[in-house]
């Protein structure tokens, strides 16, 4: 059983279908990027996983149990949500002590996680005076307090400066190397592409791709063949029947991970005349945009 399982999850807010029939797993020891443009349903999915919003349909579980059913949930799941807030008048150390008491963790874990995120020196300062980066670090310290099996981070690089982003990437790798299943959401592919093993791509609440980074988005500067045929629809059907993925792009078709020769063979077998056939390279970002169909995403 996977550490995190999302099955046929849907969530409707009034007339808005925020998440539609979403299914995916994440695995231990791997960093999974949960990617999609703003408003794609990422935060809603994570909140459904964490029992903060009630799914309209489907399930989101940790080892088969809903978050609310977990015994001492902080030992199973650590989460840093986008709007993680702290009482401004409480020190970081006291904030973590409150969580330690709630989760029945020893107080020495507080010192350990403060050191892990580099906040030992600032631990006795009130959080109201913290920078955005320090708050993110404190949120991560809170998530790590129970030494959880699963780590969930919602847009963790928001508001971080470049050194902070590098620190976050290193942290993600270190956590997965520790055997944890890490799920990190982002609308900025570039900020997580170097850290993730797997990706779940969503757009408009629907799953657009799920698998290793290479299989879903292709390697960076990966092979793509651009082809234009007399009858693009027939060619697309033939390519898909041959097991290839096809993305319309203007008047042409893009076929990721397939050489022009292979495309030519499929077209010949299908009896489709080609007007143009050429190899292309594309970046991860282009692949991501093509997959999400979101022209405004960076």
């Amino acid at each position: 059983m996977a550490p995190v399982e999302v099955r046929d999850l849907s969530k409707r807010f009034g007339s808005v279908l925020a998440v539609s029939n979403l299914s995916f797993d994440i695995q231990a020891g791997r960093v999974t990027g949960f990617l999609g443009p703003n408003g794609a349903g990422k935060s809603t999915t994570l909140r459904a996983l964490l029992g903060l919003v009630r799914p309209t349909a489907g399930t989101a579980t940790f080892g088969g149990k809903r978050y609310e059913e977990l015994d001492r949930p902080s030992t199973k799941v650590g989460a840093v949500l986008e709007d993680a807030s702290f009482h401004p008048g409480r020190t970081a150390r006291n904030h973590l002590r409150v969580l330690a008491v709630t989760g029945e963790h020893p107080f020495d874990r507080v010192d350990t996680v403060l050191a892990d995120v580099g906040l030992t020196e600032a631990a006795d300062r009130r959080v109201g005076g913290y920078s955005m980066g320090m708050r993110q670090r404190l949120g991560i310290a809170a998530a790590l307090l129970g030494d959880p099996e699963v780590l969930i981070l919602d847009e963790p690089t928001n508001g971080l400066d470049p050194p902070g982003i590098v620190w976050m990437r290193d942290l993600l790798r270190a956590q997965s190397a520790h055997g944890r299943a890490v799920l990190v959401s982002s609308h900025l592919l570039a900020e997580v592409a170097q850290s993730v093993d797997d990706v779940v791509v969503v757009s408009r609440g629907e799953l657009r791709g799920h698998g290793t980074l290479e299989s879903v988005l292709g390697g960076d500067e990966g092979l793509v063949t651009a082809v234009r045929a007399q009858d693009n629809t027939r060619l697309a059907r033939a390519l898909e029947a041959a097991g290839h993925r096809v993305q319309p792009s203007g008047g042409a078709l893009l076929v990721p991970g397939v050489s022009p020769e292979e495309v030519g063979v499929v077209a010949g077998d299908a009896g489709v005349y080609l007007a143009a056939l050429a190899p292309q390279t594309r970046s991860l970002e282009q692949a991501f945009l093509a997959l999400t169909g979101d022209a405004t995403a960076p």
């Binding site: 609310e68 949930p73 807030s85 809170a142």
Partner: peptide, 9 residues
């Protein structure tokens, strides 16, 4: 949110 995450009931 953090309070409910720590104490889901």
């Amino acid at each position: 949110t953090g309070t409910v995450l720590a104490a889901p009931d």
